[in-house]
Amino acid sequence: MAHINTLDPGASPLDYYGFELRRHREAAGLTQRQLGDIVNYTGSLVGQVETARKLPTQEFSERVDAALGTGGLLSRLVGLVMRSQLPAWFQQVAELEVRATEISTFQTHMVHGLLQSKLYMRSVLGVLDRDKLDDRAAARLARQCIFEKGEPPVFWMVLSEAALHQEIGGREVMREQLAHLLTFADDSRINIQILPYSVGEHAGLQGAFNVYRFASDPAIVYTEGYGSGHPTANPDTVRDCSLRYDHLRAAALSIKDSAGMIRRVMEDRYGEQVA
Rank of each mutant, 00 (worst) to 15 (best):
Ile194His: 10
His202Met: 13
Gly200Ser: 14
Leu195Asn: 03
Arg189Phe: 06
Glu201Asp: 11
Phe184Gly: 09
Leu178His: 01
Tyr212Thr: 01
Pro218Lys: 08
Val173Asn: 06
Glu172Trp: 00
Pro218Cys: 11
Glu172Leu: 09
Leu181Val: 05
Ser198Lys: 12
Asp186Tyr: 06
Leu181Asp: 03
Phe214His: 06
Arg171Gly: 08
Val199Lys: 11
Ala179Trp: 00
Met174Val: 06
Ala208Phe: 05
Tyr212Phe: 12
Gly204Val: 10
Val173Glu: 09
Arg171Pro: 00
Ser198Gly: 11
Ala215Asn: 11
Arg171Gln: 07
Asn191Ser: 09
Leu182Ser: 14
Gly207Cys: 10
Glu172Thr: 10
Leu178Thr: 01
Ile194Cys: 15
Ser216Gln: 14
Leu181Tyr: 07
Ser198Trp: 00
His180Lys: 11
Pro218Arg: 08
Pro196Tyr: 05
Ile168Arg: 03
Ala185Lys: 08
Gly204Arg: 13
His202Glu: 13
Gly204Glu: 12
Val211Thr: 11
Ile168Asp: 04
His180Asn: 11
Ala208Arg: 07
Asp217Trp: 02
Ile192Thr: 05
Asn191His: 13
Ile192His: 06
Val211Gln: 11
Thr183His: 03
Ser188Trp: 02
Phe209Tyr: 11
Leu182Tyr: 05
Ala185Val: 13
Gly170Ile: 03
Ile190Cys: 02
Asp187Glu: 10
Ala219Gly: 14
Gly204Gln: 11
Asn210Pro: 00
Ile194Ser: 12
Gln193His: 15
Ala219Pro: 13
Ile192Lys: 03
Gly207Val: 11
Pro218Gly: 13
Val199Cys: 10
Tyr197Glu: 02
Asp187Gln: 12
Ala203Lys: 03
Asp186Pro: 09
Asn210Arg: 05
Gly207Asn: 12
Ala208Met: 09
Asp186Phe: 02
Gln193Asp: 13
Glu201Asn: 14
Ser216Ala: 15
Ala208Val: 06
Ile168Lys: 04
Gly169Leu: 05
Leu181Thr: 04
Glu176Leu: 04
Val173Thr: 15
Ala215Leu: 13
Ala203His: 03
Glu172Cys: 01
Glu172Met: 06
Gln193Pro: 01
Leu205Tyr: 02
Ser216Met: 13
Asp217Val: 04
Gly170Phe: 02
